[in-house]
């Protein structure tokens, strides 16, 4: 397919790679919203060009990743205050390719009910499958979807977890394809680790997922932190690749009620309000 004409999708910033994966003189081909892009390094700066037209695209380096846009975003990247805290460590986990709409990836990330069955004995245990009530709202002041007061029993909540803990979660969908998670830090219950899932929607039904972890963890090696996240995400990848349709239906009735939980309903309503079309199953649209 060629570049989408969906203005809502075009007018956003997206991650398209990591700076350390670019080297001088070796352009990298990638895709965004159906358009071919060429990334490169020129004079120490990262460049992004829409391959077909030769148009230079704006580039921002932030949160360990390269961001660009094909349109004219009305707002910048989502602010993440924890990046200013100097005792935190950032680990970026690379790129994982998934044959599914990026919106499916966000919705899976929001769904706690799958922890015991998909991330068995890591993020959940099969004999404690219940998702306790939590709060969810579309925050009009920042135009984000927040799920708060989420609690889940986790046998191994992070790479440095010495045992099980009741994890407190806060989910923040900052942009349609960008979602953040704040969860109890195993080494300091007063603080929260930040995990980001940054999605590059290459095509409507294909995505590249980038994850970062911004943690207070003096114990684990960066490799251990990355491997922990890769393990979790590859468990999700199998589920995501087998979901049908690959695009996200907006009607909650289109799928089983267990998946269409509170945060999923809010997320879908928010996407509908925005009028986003890219990555959405439009067959049911009435």
């Amino acid at each position: 397919m060629s570049r989408t004409d969906d203005p809502v999708a075009l007018d956003e910033w997206y991650v398209v790679g990591r700076p350390e994966d670019l080297s001088i003189g070796r352009p990298v081909a990638t895709r965004l919203l159906g358009a071919e892009l060429t990334l490169g390094l020129a004079g120490g700066a990262v460049t992004a060009v829409e391959t077909e037209t030769g148009r230079a695209l704006p580039v921002t380096l932030a949160y360990g990743h390269v961001w660009t846009t094909l349109g004219t975003p009305t707002r910048g990247l989502p602010p993440i205050a924890e990046f200013d805290e100097t005792d935190r460590r950032l680990a970026t986990c690379g790129a994982v390719h998934v044959r599914a709409s990026g919106l499916r990836l966000v919705e899976n990330f929001l769904d706690m009910a799958h922890f015991p069955f998909v991330h068995t004995d890591i993020l959940g245990v099969e004999d404690r499958p219940t998702v306790e009530p939590y709060d969810c709202e579309i925050r009009r002041d920042v135009d984000e979807v927040w799920a708060t007061n989420c609690r889940f029993w986790q046998p191994q909540a992070a790479a440095n977890a010495a045992g099980g803990q009741m994890s407190d979660y806060l989910y923040r969908v900052a942009r349609p394809f960008t979602v953040l998670l704040y969860k109890t830090c195993p080494s300091d219950p007063a603080r929260q680790d930040v995990i980001g899932l940054l999605i590059q929607p290459t095509d409507e039904d294909r995505s590249i997922a980038y994850a970062f972890v911004l943690v207070v963890d003096a114990v684990s090696s960066t490799t251990e932190i990355i491997h922990f996240q890769q393990t979790i995400f590859l468990q999700d990848r199998i589920i995501l690749e087998n979901q049908r349709p690959r695009l996200l239906p907006l009607s909650p009735r289109a799928e089983t009620p267990t998946r269409a939980d509170l945060s999923s309903i809010a997320y879908r309503r928010w996407l509908k309000e925005k009028g986003l079309r890219f990555g959405i199953d439009r067959r049911e649209a009435a």
């Binding site: 350390e20 994966d21 986990c93 690379g94 960066t222 490799t223 251990e224 990355i226 491997h227």
Partner: peptide, 10 residues
């Protein structure tokens, strides 16, 4: 001993 094959190219 975990090795950071990807993305670290260890």
């Amino acid at each position: 001993r975990p090795v950071d094959v990807y993305p670290g190219r260890e």
